[in-house]
Design a protein around this nucleic acid. Structure first.
Lengths: 229, 229
DNA sequence: ACAAATTTAGACAGCCTTGTCCAAATCGTC
DNA sequence: GACGATTTGGACAAGGCTGTCTAAATTTGT
């Protein structure tokens, strides 16, 4: 094991800074080692903090774990909603716009540090903390998926897509644009950017083969940009 | 011969039977508790065997873990290949046949005990044993995905599908038919049969909207059933 | 039924981990 | 510079786990 704490050696200044540093370090260690294998001494070392400080801030290991999951869920959700806000409601080039959106979603929410950690914690410890992860499920997929579905519904209403069930379309969209990244995700790896772009491109093309309409939507006049929210 | 293995309380008879029983019990415990949290005493108890016998058979915890992964990989692969052998090469009703195939694949290989366990072990411990899981990757996805792609290529060659890249199509097929099961898989759950059927049905419909051709393939005469393997 | 191989239960050492306690050092703020 | 709050590091008890060892019991093959 590397006890030579290279990256986080500078003692964080301030009370709140220490708290954050602890939660951050704990996220990494819990992910690498699992809850049972995680070592409070190691977390303290990686946080640049003494063990006692960890206990001062979080009480015990389980409370620390819960704080980590809450934190990650919150940050990931924020990222996902921010990215959904960039969904192409009035696309210029629908294919390019959807590909760009899919790539942003992957890079900013799924492949980044928080996304990777949260995913792994859910996979590894989800069964042990039913209520905690039920909460994640409600706050996470339970809110983001409908939000995404609403965007697809809007595209359909605007005549850009021919979909019957926006919820199904949203889930299939995600399934398609991630189709080529599954093995990498499984093993906890981070796909290279070109792999993300490749998978998104292939996924969006197939999505549009299934649900796309001709470029000029029939019977629906392009309205002036009134509502944008 | 009472093989009454209901909860796992009856001591298994015979040398090989014990070995299998140990690996089986270990799979369950490793999955529930993770490698670090897994307890040899508990594994022995669930296998209906004394702790010393576990050590006699497998040496130490890490060797036992490796044996578990090897075992699961082997059994899962066998199941996947057996299921791929039921792929509809000469479909009567393409949609129904593909849905049936997707459901079989899910029920026999992904949602069953072995599949669930192997998936979880890869997710949780994959990073800790790079060579072991590299082996899985070669033996698993590295062999099954091309096999599935070959079946899609055959359907395309037979005029049933319009796909350019069979490998991409195979991955997207899997992504689509599992699109609605992702959250359940994440949390380690087992989807109900009707959920599997639902997801497969929606997935196959979208797949065929993207890649399907008219029911009567043009320019390709239906040949007598010669090769079926 | 007998001999060899295997299994069992229990004890045991060695190690690691969590969580607590405390006195000294440090920090932040006035 | 001084004071209160926070942090530090080290010691510590209690408990858990792995892996080994033993002698007795059991199973297996013949």
């Amino acid at each position: 094991m590397r006890l030579g704490v290279s990256p986080d050696t500078f003692p964080p200044r301030g009370h709140e800074a220490k708290r954050l540093s602890i939660v951050d370090a704990a996220a990494g260690v819990f992910c690498r080692e699992g809850f049972a294998g995680a070592n409070i001494d190691l977390i303290a070392a990686e946080a640049g903090v003494s063990r006692q400080t960890v206990y001062n801030h979080h009480g015990d290991k389980e409370k620390l774990f819960i704080a980590v999951v809450r934190d990650l869920t919150e940050r990931c959700n924020a990222g996902i909603f921010a990215t959904i806000a960039t969904f192409p409601d009035q696309p210029g080039n629908l294919e390019q716009d959807l590909i760009g959106f899919a790539v942003r979603l992957n890079q900013n929410c799924i492949c980044n540090r928080d996304g990777k950690f949260l995913r792994k914690l859910i996979q590894t410890e989800g069964e042990r903390y039913p209520e905690l992860f039920a909460e994640w499920r409600e706050q996470g997929p339970g809110r983001t998926w409908p939000a995404l579905a609403a965007r697809f519904a809007r595209l359909a209403y605007g005549g850009y897509l021919a979909i019957e069930d926006p919820d199904v379309a949203a889930r299939q969209f995600l399934g398609l644009v991630n189709a080529e990244l599954q093995t990498t995700f499984m093993l906890g790896g981070t796909p290279r950017e070109d792999e993300v772009v490749q998978s998104a491109t292939n996924g969006v093309r197939t999505f549009l083969r299934a649900f796309g309409k001709r470029p000029a939507p029939a019977g629906v006049k392009k309205q002036a940009t009134l509502a944008s929210a």
